[in-house]
Nucleic acid binder design. Structure first.
Lengths: 327, 327
DNA sequence: TTGTAAGCGTTATCAT
DNA sequence: ATGATAACGCTTACAA
């Protein structure tokens, strides 16, 4: 491996000069500059980022802890974060907490050990203990999608209040009175918030909590459909539980929306292709990822970014039935 | 930030002893061990991974260069790689080449600079120039999904030969004679290979090349459907182009399979939910990611892993029509 | 068993 | 404008 020493020797200058040239300092004269650059070129020299980081205490690397990478929503977020980071010359180390608080804590520690310049976390649960560690070390932190109580750092998330109100209204207009909710975990902010906001819609709710994953969607749908007084519509509070619900509906040969209406929180490219197309609350997923990365980058740059709330919106497609003139 | 020096001082030993304790060396006596550990605990000391890596020339980090993270197939691969890496105590830096050879080269260089212990690459194109750089530095390299000419490193990929033969047979049995192929780029091994293997099936083919992305699927489907002698079935050679084709079919109000049959290479969870469910060639995606990570880890450990070929298989669902007894 | 000290490849300070 | 040199925080001979 060729080092800065080799380059210095080859160019007949000191390592300091090579470093100055490579870092675009004002000092070196044009003549030495070209000589150094020639040596760099000839030897195919590339600076060791580790050594540099050790010295400068900057890694130009972001840590991203995702609560569940299987979830296309979070996969999309991860992609957007990577994109925005790349645009600013940063790399991203991606960590998957698999909705486990312990795994998340482990990963956060690992990323801190690696001296990432900042941390982007989609908290798996409300447990806030890990945050102290991050703040102790003064590592810039931004929360994404979910928040946790007592977090003093910037939070970037979607605002689904209006969309959920609209959804409740649309369901009501379509003649639904009693709907089954496949809710997220009660120990996540999004799990609680979506349920609560939807509950304000005045519908009679039957609630089963899932864990934001496919299987729980299947189980929750089954439980709701087995109810003696079966709800006329189901609302799944994330796309994976929505997928599970759809599978269960298909398994039971129930027609949507004739037998049961369905709506899902978080849109996916394939929802419009179903028959009928699925009515959803669409989140500005990519923009959330980008905004979060930008906030973190700003924090790293010493600025004080505000919280970001991106509004989700209802997309009515047909899986909840038609609005009846009467209702 | 507390360093190993602080711990040494606090425990009344040398930094060397602290290091030995922390790295589980045989030397230290039980008594000093506990004393050191107590100091570590009390100070909340965490070793600086950068400094350690600089010294040991090992980062326990894998670099993963994905050709297109938007593609759920690659997202799934990324997840599987991360999972397997984590199980072995490795982190993953994810890079997205966006199907661009230049971006890929840039990222490879960046990851080498960061001294990743090994590199996992899904090559964006056949261009092999970047490989030389990696091999020069003797960084373990494994190719994933796609290969490039002249690569001497292990390759992990799917074998779709049989599945594509089966697909051609199934299409024939369903009465199709002339099918439109939405193929991958000719400058990717998978693009060429899938087309070639499918072509052996004896069907009359109309081929349009896409770029493995959604839009190209829309365009290719449109082109094929506009043909004077319209094919009776479409085969999309990856899931995103399949999505695009489905959108175009829906836009034209064409019924599957009554008007046009459809099959897609690479399964997705929502394909069974469509009406009719989509016939696919299912790849062992997760296993590919895992296998690739394992091969790379083996390479890093000094072993000589073989190429891995995981067989894809045809899943007949209904989007190609029923087999007619006659055919 | 433990300590001393060199070295990993940089950058930055301080002279010159 | 350039060159020595210390320092970043750790591991590892080598010595004791």
């Amino acid at each position: 491996m060729t080092t800065i020493k080799d380059v210095a020797q080859h160019a007949g200058v000191s390592t300091a000069t090579v470093s100055r040239v490579l870092n675009g300092h004002a000092a070196p004269t044009e003549e030495t500059r070209t000589r150094v650059l020639a040596a760099v070129e000839e030897l195919g020299y590339r600076p060791n980022a580790l050594a540099r980081s050790l010295r400068t205490t900057s890694t130009t690397t972001l840590g991203l802890v995702i609560s569940d990478l299987v979830n296309p929503f979070f996969a999309e977020i991860a992609r957007a974060v990577e994109e925005e980071a790349r645009a600013h010359g940063f790399c991203v180390i991606v960590a998957n907490a698999d909705e486990s608080a312990e795994q998340q804590a482990t990963y956060v520690r690992n990323l801190l050990d690696r001296r990432v310049d900042g941390l982007l976390v989609c908290p798996a649960t409300d447990d806030p203990t890990w945050i102290a560690e991050v703040e102790d070390k003064h590592i810039p932190l931004v929360l994404l999608d979910r928040t946790v109580a007592g977090a003093t750092c910037p939070v970037v998330r979607a605002d689904g209040a209006q969309a959920l109100a609209d959804l409740a209204a649309a369901l009501t207009a379509a003649g639904h009175r009693r709907v089954g909710v496949i809710a997220g975990p009660a120990d996540t902010s999004t799990g609680r918030e979506r349920l609560e906001q939807f509950a304000r819609g005045g519908l009679e709710l039957e609630v089963v909590h899932g864990d934001f994953r496919r299987d729980s969607g299947v189980r929750a749908a089954a439980a709701l459909l087995d109810l003696p007084d079966r709800p006329t519509a189901l609302v799944a509070m994330d796309n994976l539980m929505g997928l599970g619900a759809l599978e269960e509906l298909r398994r039971r040969n129930l027609k949507v929306p004739a037998d049961v209406g369905l709506a899902v929180y978080d849109d996916q490219p394939w929802f419009p292709l179903l028959d009928p197309p699925i009515t959803v609350v669409a989140q500005p997923t990519v923009e959330m990822g980008r905004a979060a990365a930008r906030s973190l980058l700003a924090l790293i740059a010493g600025e004080q970014p505000d919280d970001v709330r991106l509004t989700a919106r209802l997309v009515v497609r047909g899986s909840c039935g038609e609005a009846t003139g009467a209702a």
